[in-house]
Each structure stands twice: as C-alpha cells, then as structure tokens.
Design a protein around this nucleic acid. Structure first.
Lengths: 229, 229
DNA sequence: AAACAGTATGACGATTTTGTGACGGGCGCA
DNA sequence: TGCGCCCGTCACAAAATCGTCATACTGTTT
C-alpha cells in the first residue's frame, strides 16, 4: 500500500489530472491550492512526497520549496517541481532550491507516475519487516537470520544491516556516503573507508556459499549489489 | 576540488579548529571575527558557504544572516549556524532567518565536515540519472552499467563519463577543450592530447561490439558521436 | 613526392583507489 | 574483573586507472 502524496497547484484541472494519474498507480493523494494550505496539510499529516507547482499565488513555489527544504532537516520529504516552461535557467534554479526532480508541463500521467516512482525508490527506506530474497540468498529481518542455499550464515549487526540495505536496493550503485547514511544513520560521523572494511567482512561471510560475487565494486563511485556480473 | 568557505566567529580558537578541519577535507577557508569583517570578505570574493556564529559582537549572527538573505549577491549562499545551546525556540528562529543548517557547540571536526558536505550537496544540482540509448548502446548512470547489444562492457571511470558526455551530446563536433571541460571538470590542467588517448581507450572498449564507428574524428576540430558514418 | 600537421597506438611510470590483515577500544555478560 | 565479540581506524599490499610520451600512421598541402 503506497503512501500519500501532496499536490500543490492553483489550477484545479492540474490537480484533478494528477489525482487521477496517482490513483491509477495506487497512491493516495492530498491537494492544496497554495503554500498556506499546503503547509497546514504538511504539518498535520506529512506526505511521502510533494508535487509542487513552480508558480503559486502568494508565496511562490520556489520560495516554498526552499522553506520546506530548510525544515527537511528533521523531515525528509522529497519534492518534485512542476514547471511550465522548459527554460534552462529556471531548471537550474529549481534544482538549486532543493527539488529532487522536476516535471515540465504539460506532462503525461505516465511520466508523472514514473518520476514519482523513481524519486520514491531513490528515497525509499528499507522495509523493516519483509523477507528479502535474491536467488539463493534469503534475509529475514524479523528473525535476524540469513540463509545462503539453506545454510545459515552468521553476520554481525552492521554486516546484517549492510546486506539488508543492499538487497533492498539492488542494481543501483551506492556511494560510500550514501551507504553510511542508510546503514549507520544520517548523522554518524564516520570515515568513509569504514564502509570498505565492512564490505570486506560481508564479502568474506558470503564467500563460503559463493555469493560474494553479488557485491560489485564500481571504481571511483561505490558499490553495487547485483546478480549478474 | 571543493570551493571556499567563510567562517565567522569571534573566538580565534574556534576559527582555528574549523580551519584545520576544513583543510583536512580539502576546503579552502576564509575567516572573520565579526559581521563587518565578514561582509568585506563576502563582497570581495563570495564564498560557497558561510559558517556563522550565533553570538557575535556588534551585529548578531542572526541579524547578519537575515541581512545576507536580503542581498541579491548573497542570498544563494548557504549558511550554517554555530550555536551554543540546543534551544528549540532558537532553532526555529535560526531556520526562519535563512540558515540552512546549524551545529551546536561543541562539535567534532568530523561532524563539521559532514554537515558542510551535506548542505553543499543539497545545494548542488541533482544529477539527472536518466538512461541514455543510441541504437543498441545503453548507458545507465544509476547502475553504472553499459550494454552493447545486451553485452556488458566494462569501462573505467573516465571512459564512462566520456561516453556519457558523448551520448548526451550526439551529432555535434566537440573540441578537445570542450571535452576536457565537460568530462574532466571546468578547471583541469591537463594536456589536450589526453583526450585522444581516452578516445582511443573508449573506442577499443566499443570495438568488440562494433560500436566504435559511433565515435568519429573530425580532423582539425575534434570528435563527434553519431550513429551514421 | 616530400614535407607537414594532425591523429592513432602502445608502453610506462606515477597516482589513485580498493583490498586486506591487524590493532586497540568499548560494551555486555558472566 | 576478565572474557569475548564487534566495531572503527590504520598501515600496508595489490590493483586499477591515469596522464604523458615516443613512435607510427594518415590525410593534406606544396
């Protein structure tokens, strides 16, 4: 059950279109016509993502984005900008205000959903309950056990969380910084090289069952968890 | 190479500590003891980020932040507040004056660097992670994989960036200088012939699947990426 | 055809990035 | 208090990649 998304746009037609598109994709949807309404909804019940129009009556979308971004210290809500023109200048400014993506109007429902999914996926925390499976590798967060071809392998707490993170975010390359944020917590001030060491330990634990090949290093960028070479 | 950062604090000890920490992380560092000094430095040569003490002799940090936000020249420069207490009230006020983050004293050098990086990253334009396709060639920045007719080919970091640049700017001739700017960074002191060598390496990697024909040399001008001969 | 300028290619030392083993410290538990 | 476990950091080894150069090649000009 996907979460709730807040649309902020002064044009009801746009809102309706967005609501419809999101409903098709099983997203709940809250609506606001200006920044004031939006802020009320955000504080009352924080959405998972905000779709924010570039031009808004009163406080403009840009300014509101900036404000949201400042408050994002505590609340990490991704923002997608809706902008009318394809102006390169505005595009840069929009990104500078802290938007995570932007969509230029007019846009298709399909594009909207695709971008929403992309951003949410990028931000996605790990599902804490679900059993994760990749080929013969099974990780069960609830029992804190990892099976490789039905053989139990023992990991330390950090290695477990690391593997969990990788298995829930496969294929994508993760910078050491990103891994630190996800596995150690958003404010652990730790040397990035520590990631290497834990990768090493995790790999060693996985080697006995031959699954160390899943963890690939992408030179100069970070690491990736993937089934194929 | 990271840019310059301005530290505004009346305690020389703090400034020294900050300077040292930032130098470790390869940031240049300017210092000021009060708002007057700070303002001189800011107008002379705007820094990329300002570390601003909450309490300052004369014009207070909060007021100065507010003033910075009003000036066109400085309103896009992120500000991190240095504050002694963790007062929730002050925190809100700080954010409202336009601070992008704040650090409570005392803090570790590592925390400082981490927060500076975080704020700078938030300000930086997002990398557009879209998959680029040209005939049978597929380059995916998010997974950092390149497929040529479904066959995986492995590129070094520079070759990857080079191919990415070419694929996102096809059908156009690029001078070596232009390529250096785009792929190596806007101020890399590197022999232009190095481009030739990397073109060569990229071509070799592409040859196995016959895609080297995509990279054409335009004698006396530069190179071009294009599907047709 | 020879001279010339621009480009391709292979090799090499230097540098950067990552892998690996070891060490000391903290923390819980007996 | 002693012990075992796990962690973060370091120093060093190994590996990958980089930038430059010398040389061979190619197309152009005179």
């Amino acid at each position: 059950m996907p979460g709730k998304i807040l649309v902020v746009d002064d044009e009801p037609a746009i809102r309706a279109m967005v609501r419809f598109a999101l409903k098709q994709a099983d997203y709940n949807c809250a609506e606001a016509g200006d920044a004031i309404e939006a802020q009320a909804l955000v504080t009352a019940d924080p959405p998972e993502l905000i779709l924010l129009d570039w031009m808004l009556p009163g406080l403009s979308g840009v300014d509101y984005a900036r404000r949201l971004r400042r408050e994002r210290l505590t609340q990490n809500i991704p923002i997608i900008m809706l902008t009318a023109r394809v102006d390169e200048e505005d595009k840069v400014r929009a990104l500078n205000t802290g938007a995570d993506d932007f969509i230029t109007k007019p846009f298709s429902p399909r594009e909207l959903v695709a971008r929403v999914r992309a951003v949410l996926r990028r931000m996605a925390p790990m599902a804490v309950d679900e059993v994760v499976v990749a080929e013969g590798l099974v990780l069960d967060p609830s029992t804190h056990k990892v099976l490789a071809n039905d053989e139990r392998l023992s990991l330390g707490p950090t290695e477990f969380r690391l593997l969990h993170f990788f298995m829930t975010h496969p294929e994508r390359v993760h910078s050491r910084e990103r891994v630190l944020d996800a596995v150690w917590g958003n404010n652990a001030y730790i040397d990035e090289r520590t990631v290497d060491v834990h990768i090493r330990r995790l790999r060693k634990a996985l080697t006995v069952s031959g699954y160390d090949r899943f963890i690939q290093t992408v030179r100069g960028v970070g690491y990736r968890f993937s089934g194929d070479a």
